[in-house]
Design a protein around this nucleic acid. Structure first.
Length: 613
RNA sequence: CGGGAUGUAGCGCAGCUUGGUAGCGCACUUCGUUCGGGACGAAGGGGCCGCAGGUUCGAAUCCUGUCAUCCCGACCA
């Protein structure tokens, strides 16, 4: 490898935090000369970061290859037709769709790959014919394009980012589960080798679809996701998905159903504080509208126990499962506004006083909406014997209402589901003595058991041992490589700058002559640098004629794990070895450097892995 | 898309209220002194004040529009 000298590295560090950055990792990457923003959510990876990314990629490759996965490279430009066959084109391009798309000179529609299920499945349909070829797992490391609604935090949520994605194909579900398990293990090793503390959590499958899925979260305050874990470590889930035991409702005193005057009390808090109810004695109703790619907008009437919060992801899944055939992808669920009612030609409703008994009659004559509510309720609401809810008339609630009385016709009674958000402090399902604790996480990996969704849509079949034609079983496995790099900074930094884990640091050691104009120092620095490189150590030499302080500050900022200072002691062959993490210093003879550093470095190259493979 | 904020030199900012033709710190260039934690002095280069209209004798400053960026929500590796 060429000589790595700071003077030749295009190292441009900044003293001030750039105003465009909000979170520490973003600021440090900009200040350290790792990235530059080119456009919203689009970054140039400067030479220093490119080295980090390549180290991460190499760890990923290593572990993926070890599982027998095959590296490949798929096109980024993809025909709309493939996405139309899987049914995702509209959802990914219409409305707030995330796919960059364009027409070519022939007027054909193309999309810039946000992910590769369609392409890989089409390939699988072409290449995989017999169970004898299975299982197979293909992966690639490549730039993905997503027109994020709101790019932010630098590489955390870019519109162009590097991802490792893998897709596995199987003859049966058991084989899929086996590879899924192998990926789980490989991912744990990958993150450990990168020096990251990561947690595996149960996750929602989102737009990708499929059944089981698990996310890998790097724990950090700046994380965008809320994760809930049990203190015994046996349960961990993304809040989107998390389940818990609800607190018991306080029973409402018996009594027949009667009107209760509640002028101006439109919220649960106002209602409860005015009449001394506990929120768990009430049922609140949310009036929402679900919009689909193709179908008519569907009004929703969602009932929750008053003390519970709606989990929008669970709701979206429930609505998707109940959507009419041909409605296409669910685009959005949003509260219905009085303006929307007017636009539909419908009468105003008593917002704040609605109850589960709200009749479909209020939707009669709607111009574009379905004229019946999709009625859903969380189990905690359905379990209430007696409760307080809106009377669907202004300034009035019902006290002592019951589902039987409100909805005598069982067909109008909502389906009972889990629609509530688990909260920190809730009791755990697996052990009621355990409680959920909250932590924030950055999602750096996600593995899915897709099942046969894509293979059925794209007719990717194989001939089974019994001779029948069957759709392939599929899994897919992603790692956000560029996001991982920034997550590492978020997890490993201090007041002076980045503290890269050795395994992914752009360089392992930086040799700093305190005074480069002092021939003894610069000569010894050169010798040590050469010796380190010859020993296979990724060393950098700060050969600039800057003052020592500048070089130290820069070394701290860019986060090289080890610093060798060649200073005044050089004349006696003494140098200083400084560990970036914690600024631990030791003085030693220059001749002892390799012997001291190499064993430690070899250990640190394993990251958090307990032992080499 | 809804809500909030900001656009002035490569970076960070002041100037705008009360119009008079642009300034500070860092960075950059040259010289000298310094030399183990972002040195000091001297001299210098660099700005269609986001863009387009308008008001005015005169606009960075006032008005209108527009674009971009950032923050809060929906999306995700």
């Amino acid at each position: 490898m060429d000589a790595m000298r700071v003077s030749r590295l295009l190292l441009v560090t900044l003293r001030d935090d750039p105003s465009e950055a909000e979170i520490v990792s973003h600021k440090l990457l900009l200040r350290g000369g790792y990235i530059r923003r080119i456009s919203s959510g689009i970054y140039a990876y400067l030479p220093l970061l490119w080295r980090v990314l390549q180290k991460i990629e190499s760890i990923v490759r290593d572990e993926m290859n070890a599982t027998g996965a095959l590296e490949t490279l798929l096109p980024q430009l993809q025909p709309a037709e493939l996405w139309q066959r899987s049914g995702r084109w509209d959802g990914y391009t219409a409305g707030e769709g995330i796919m960059f798309h364009l027409d070519d000179r022939q007027g054909r529609e193309l999309g810039l790959g946000p992910t590769h299920e369609e392409v890989i499945t089409a390939l699988a349909a072409d290449l995989l014919r017999s169970y004898r070829q299975l299982p197979v797992n293909l992966y690639q490391i490549q730039t993905k394009f997503r027109d994020e609604i709101r790019p932010r935090f630098g590489l955390m949520r870019g519109r162009e980012f590097i991802m490792k994605d893998a897709y596995s194909f199987h003859a049966d579900e058991a084989s899929l589960r086996e590879t899924y398990g192998a990926m789980d293990q490989a991912y744990r090793r990958i993150f450990a080798r990168c020096g990251l503390r990561a947690v595996a959590v149960e996750a929602d499958s989102g737009a990708i679809g499929g059944s089981a899925s698990q996310e890998f979260m790097v724990t950090a305050e700046a994380g965008e996701d809320l994760i809930l874990t049990s203190s015994d470590g046996r349960y961990a889930a993304n809040q989107e998905r998390a389940v818990s035991l609800p607190s018991a409702a306080i029973p409402l005193q018996d009594g027949s159903c009667r009107d209760l005057a509640t002028p101006g009390q439109r919220s649960i808090e106002e209602l409860c504080s005015a009449h001394g109810f506990d929120p768990s004695q009430t049922v609140k109703v949310l009036l929402l509208l679900a919009r689909f790619a193709n179908g008519q907008p569907q009004p929703l009437l969602v009932s929750l126990r008053g003390d519970q919060q709606l989990n929008e992801v669970k709701l979206a899944n429930a609505v998707t499962a109940r959507a009419e055939a041909g409605a296409g992808a669910l685009l959005e669920i949003a509260p219905i506004t009085p303006e929307q009612l007017k636009a539909e030609g419908l009468a105003d409703l008593a917002f704040g006083y609605l109850g589960p008994q709200l009749s479909d009659a209020v939707l009669q004559g709607a111009k574009t909406w379905q004229q019946r509510f999709l009625r859903l309720a969380d189990g905690t609401a359905l379990e209430l014997e007696r409760f307080v809810c809106g009377a669907t008339r202004p300034d009035t609630h019902l006290q002592g209402a019951s589902w039987e009385a409100l909805c005598p016709n069982a067909s109008l009674r909502p389906a009972g589901l889990d629609l509530r958000s688990a909260q920190p402090g809730d009791r755990c399902v697996h052990d009621p003595d355990q409680h959920l604790e909250a932590a924030r996480g950055i999602e750096v990996g996600h593995i899915f058991q897709l099942g046969r969704k894509y293979s059925e849509a794209l007719e990717a079949t194989f001939t089974s041992e019994a001779g029948s034609d069957e759709p392939l079983w599929m899994g897919c496995y992603g790692i956000g490589v560029s996001r991982l790099a920034q997550a590492a900074v978020e997890q490993h930094h201090d007041g002076h700058g980045i503290c890269w884990p050795v395994s992914i640091a752009p360089f392992e050691v930086i040799v700093v002559p305190a005074n480069a104009d002092e021939p003894v120092q610069s000569q010894l620095a050169e010798e040590l640098y050469t010796g380190l490189r010859q020993a296979g150590i990724d060393a950098l030499l700060d050969d600039r004629s800057e003052r020592a302080g500048v070089k130290f500050k820069d070394a701290d900022l860019i986060g090289i794990p080890w610093r060798v200072v060649v200073g005044r002691g050089a004349i006696e062959g003494r140098i200083e070895l400084v560990r970036r993490q914690g600024s631990v210093k030791q003085e030693l003879a220059a001749s002892a450097l390799l012997g001291t550093l190499l064993p430690t470095l070899q250990q640190e190259r394993l990251g958090l892995l307990e032992q080499p493979a």
